[in-house]
């Protein structure tokens, strides 16, 4: 994925879209106060300078799907692992809730289910049948909407063709009003995401940790 911070307006459409797609529960004010609100993608804000010469920079942060993910080797049950496609995946029914992965993740993008989720009826009808509902005691995080990737792969296979660039969009990228989020195949040098990832504006989040994240941030430019 590539995130163009020069397009991102900080509107949080990605945050709500992710909740809608991935059956992420709301925890309510009491648990949110205890730091247990779950947002697989969040918009961070960085203030620079003091009034009146002040600037604010937004940065959407989701699981960076690191090639050398610190969450993976610490998992005693291989719940956190790497897929052949290069996704950092979480197998919920392997997870025993040690939370080692969350402690190891430098991006703070993993969320623990402290409770069974609740959707007072008929709110349950909003649930996406393609995404498992996580129960108490497991760790969850951004999957790059793996259900959408799989569905598109199956469809492409049935049609006896390759996936087209831009055919798969995670919910966050689909919702983004200013098209700041671009998803695609990094192994395809001609894909839009590959092109953006080679941008001179590009950088990786906490790159010096050696995690080899797969999300490239294109920095916001300054006026000339």
């Amino acid at each position: 994925m590539a995130v163009d911070l020069d397009r991102c307006t900080g509107c949080e459409a990605c945050v709500t879209a992710c909740h809608a797609e991935n059956n992420i529960p709301t925890v309510g004010p009491g648990q949110a106060q205890r730091g247990r609100a779950m947002h697989w993608i969040r918009v961070e804000r960085y203030w620079e300078g003091d009034f009146p010469d002040v600037r604010l920079k937004f940065r959407p942060v989701m699981c960076q799907h690191c090639d050398a993910a610190p969450c993976e080797p610490v998992c005693p049950t291989y719940a956190s692992h790497h897929t052949e496609d290069g996704l950092n995946a979480q197998v919920y029914n392997r997870c025993i809730g040690t939370r080692y992965c969350a402690n190891a993740c430098p991006y703070n993008v993993r969320f623990f289910d402290f409770f069974n989720p609740q959707w007072p009826k008929p709110l349950h009808l909003q649930l996406n049948p393609d995404v498992s509902v996580r129960e108490v005691g497991v760790m969850e995080k951004c999957t790059f909407c793996v259900q959408r990737i799989s569905a598109a792969q199956i469809q492409a296979k049935a049609d006896k063709r390759d996936l087209k660039d831009g055919e798969v969009q995670p919910a966050c990228a689909q919702a983004c009003p200013s098209k700041a989020l671009v998803f695609g195949d990094l192994n395809d040098p001609d894909s839009e995401v590959s092109r953006l990832s080679r941008s001179p504006r590009g950088s990786k989040l906490l790159d010096d940790l050696g995690t080899r994240p797969k999300v490239t941030y294109l920095q916001r430019q300054s006026a000339v």
């Binding site: 509107c11 949080e12 459409a13 945050v15 709500t16 879209a17 909740h19 809608a20 919702a175 983004c176 009003p177 200013s178 098209k179």
Partner: peptide, 8 residues
């Protein structure tokens, strides 16, 4: 695109 309110 759709804003967060529209999504909800």
């Amino acid at each position: 695109g759709l804003c967060p309110r529209g999504q909800a």
